[in-house]
Nucleic acid binder design. Structure first.
Lengths: 239, 239
DNA sequence: TCTTTGTTTTTTGTTGACAATTTGCCGGGT
DNA sequence: ACCCGGCAAATTGTCAACAAAAAACAAAGA
């Protein structure tokens, strides 16, 4: 269910890439709090490299939405705006809908089998509740990625992946999972995935789009509710 | 109809930014053909700067979709894949639909007036045919930007703008305009915009989404037809 | 006491040189 | 004639120092 980023064959990861990855994790772990200033020299010393690679790592992190760079004023960890998370999911929902529609239209022969296997995993997780919400979300994410890939729409895949990584980062911040915690919710999710699978297998592209959208919109709405409950959002969360 | 990129107040543009802009124009003008290798030293000498800023300009151009960087193999001007242009418009269509829906839901009081003015300009252009297809497209683009902005969805605006700049670049490559050349087509476009205006003014978010999508899907389909006619695409362009 | 101005310090922007890697080429081998 | 290994040129990756800008600070004036 993984992928190779389309370019680097066997090549070891680039230095700025490694630094960006490590810094990204540190941001997600909360070691670097939002608003914290990131000084090039500081991390250059920390990783024992020069400022050049660190500088480039910052740009990578900016593109991923982790930090914000103002030309002559340095880089800061971006603030977590809960409203942005909901907005991100709205965007992801329509993109995922398009992916499902186009994947259904292309009808790659390998799709039904792979998708059915993934949906079975989600169903099992919903029944047994034997895996963590995080792991459940990872399976769902892999399935989304699969469909986006099989849509055959390269710009769509790229955009979806970028927004997904931003959304995951923001979700990682609330220590408590924001969704997929209860059996009811997981069963609802599994049901929606089942609907999507059925529509795609039957070649019904329009239904596939609707169901795909519904999956992420349901996720968004539950997250909003959870964030309201955790006082991260004010009580007026209609969107 | 423009905006300031949210950060740079009065500050002069950064050196890498200037280089990226200039190189971007040169790519659009066709001076740098797809597949051409971009050597850092070469442009460093040309702009009389060191390799650092050029390197950074390359990353900016990569983010904009103009070039492709492979870690230890340098940068090349990206090939123009006509199928990507259609795909880009499919993505933009669903994003614009979402923007129209959310903008309608938010119902900023200034929206109807601004939108009506823009639609009037498009209608006039359709009647008189007194402005070039490129200018017509610019008005349409400004209107799209307006709606994306008034959706209040920051990630959506950002994503839409990025994809738009990529699409515009690719469209600039076919010397002949790919859309909005005939009176019939402009009148169809103006009619769709009129429908969208009516739906948004009436607060009908669902219709607004449908019409907004239809606007860009119509544009996509006409472009595909034009590209097929110009032998840029094979005759099987269903999507 | 608060504001404002000038100075010092910190931090980013840029540069030119060096190191590591890749690419193109040539000769030897099958 | 074709393929393979190794040398040389070219190109990207990295570094450390310098320049310019911003931030922090201190002192003088209202």
């Amino acid at each position: 269910m993984d992928q190779q980023t389309a370019s680097g064959p066997i090549c070891a990861l680039t230095l700025p890439q490694q630094i960006a990855d490590h810094l990204g994790h540190r941001i997600m772990n909360g070691e670097l709090v939002p608003g914290a200033r990131l000084k090039e020299e500081e991390f250059a010393g920390l990783y024992d490299v020069s400022r050049g690679p660190v500088r480039e790592a910052f740009r990578i992190l900016e593109r991923r939405g982790f930090i914000e760079i103002v030309p002559r004023h340095g880089a800061r960890v971006r603030a977590f705006d809960p409203a942005d998370l909901a907005a991100l999911f709205s965007v992801r929902a329509v993109l995922f809908g398009l992916a499902a529609r186009q994947a259904t239209e292309r009808a790659e022969p390998e799709l039904p089998g792979l998708l059915a296997a993934q949906v079975a995993r989600l169903r099992r997780s919903a029944e047994a509740m034997d895996i963590s919400p995080r792991e459940h979300a990872i399976i769902a994410g892999d399935t989304q990625h699969l469909i986006a890939r099989l849509s055959g729409n390269k710009p769509l895949l790229r955009t979806f992946e970028e927004l997904t990584s931003r959304a995951l980062w923001r979700m990682a911040w609330s220590e408590r999972p924001l969704d997929l915690t209860t059996r009811d919710r997981r069963q609802e999710s599994a049901r929606l995935w089942g609907d999507l699978l059925a529509a795609m297998t039957a070649g019904n592209a329009l239904d596939a789009e609707r169901f795909a959208r519904a999956i992420l919109e349901a996720s968004r709405d539950h997250m909003i509710a959870a964030m309201v409950a955790q006082r991260l959002l004010p009580a007026d969360a209609a969107d």
